[in-house]
């Protein structure tokens, strides 16, 4: 069959070109980073068994709630998100669900040495300390025990790990620096619907102030993540969230220390923002394919009918 041979030649050169300009070229342009399964192997292992009841006391004595809200328990600093951002650079996270969203090892190291856990030691030194002070113990004998207790306490007050939703994970781990305009998310929370234009403008002015604070703290305004699910691929996002330094050495973005599950939720949130109709694509695609295959059949029958007199 000469036509099939010609088709094979055309297909071969087309696929070769495709392979060269897509998988091969992109593989050469972007360094491949393997996922480390969110094990955070570089962080010290937890050696102590935490006790949540003791942890509650240490949590108070350690002064965590001086800067952090724990809204689930009604503890609030009384500072607005905008003022907190102005004071600390970034609005410190609410700790209600920190125990579920962040890895326990990460939380423990973060309490002891924030810049180390977040892989931003290149940004801070003794002259410019990280805005979250390191914990030097709350009077107990063993600082590691105290930290383990606090981590256990945070886990005890949080929702169950599997109950972490995309929105919870994103807002907590990413949303204090990154806006997502397609979901109306701002550094100060979700943009409400305003009745009066002047209220909307006030809110927007506050967002600009918060963005200025984040910009001053980070060096540049962290990008809006609305379309990141399409401008970066899922593997990139996952490995970047796991360790930003692995892709962008020296970046100001901290390692946020989410668990594997919370990272999936973050990516799910980004899909909802930038590619919410992916399921439709699949569904409609299947129907179109069925239609097209019938079209091929009918076209073939028509061709046979017309050409039977021509051969």
């Amino acid at each position: 069959m000469k036509e099939l041979f010609i088709l094979a030649v055309v297909t071969f050169f087309s696929l070769l070109t495709y392979w060269l300009v897509e998988p091969f070229a992109h593989g050469q342009m972007h360094a491949h980073v393997d996922s480390k399964s969110f094990a955070y192997a570089d962080l010290p292992a937890l050696t102590k068994q935490g006790d949540a009841t003791r942890g509650a006391d240490t949590f108070m004595a350690g002064g965590c709630i001086g800067c952090h809200n724990v809204k689930a328990l009604g503890m609030e600093t009384g500072m607005s998100a905008k003022d907190a951002a102005a004071a600390y650079g970034v609005n410190p996270p609410d700790l209600s669900n920190a125990g579920a969203i962040y890895d326990a090892k990460f939380l423990a190291d973060l309490i002891k040495n924030p810049a180390h856990a977040m892989s931003v030691e290149h940004k801070f030194d003794d002259m410019h300390p990280h805005p979250m002070p390191a914990f030097y113990g709350a009077g107990g004998e063993d600082i590691d025990q105290e930290i383990a207790d606090m981590v256990a306490y945070m886990q005890s007050i949080a929702v169950k790990a599997e109950e972490v939703t995309p929105k919870m994970a994103f807002e907590d781990a990413c949303g204090r620096c990154h806006a997502v305009r397609y979901t109306k998310w701002t550094q100060l929370g979700e943009m409400p619907n305003f009745k009066y234009k002047k209220d909307e403008l006030r809110f927007q002015a506050d967002v600009l102030d918060a963005q200025d604070a984040v910009k001053a703290y980070m060096g540049k305004l962290p990008p809006d993540l609305s379309m990141y699910i399409r401008s970066r691929n899922e593997h990139f996002l996952s490995t970047f969230i796991e360790d930003p330094q692995s892709h962008l050495h020296g970046t100001a973005m901290p390692r946020v220390g989410v668990t594997a599950h919370a990272s999936e939720q973050v990516i799910e949130y980004m899909k909802m923002a930038g590619d919410p109709l992916a399921a439709d694509r699949d569904e409609i695609g299947k129907n179109v394919m069925i239609y097209m295959i019938f079209f091929v059949l009918f076209a073939y029958l028509w061709k046979r009918q017309i050409w039977k007199d021509l051969h």
Partner: peptide
């Protein structure tokens, strides 16, 4: 007729 088959 042949064109349309290829198009399909």
């Amino acid at each position: 007729a042949k064109d349309m088959f290829v198009v399909a």
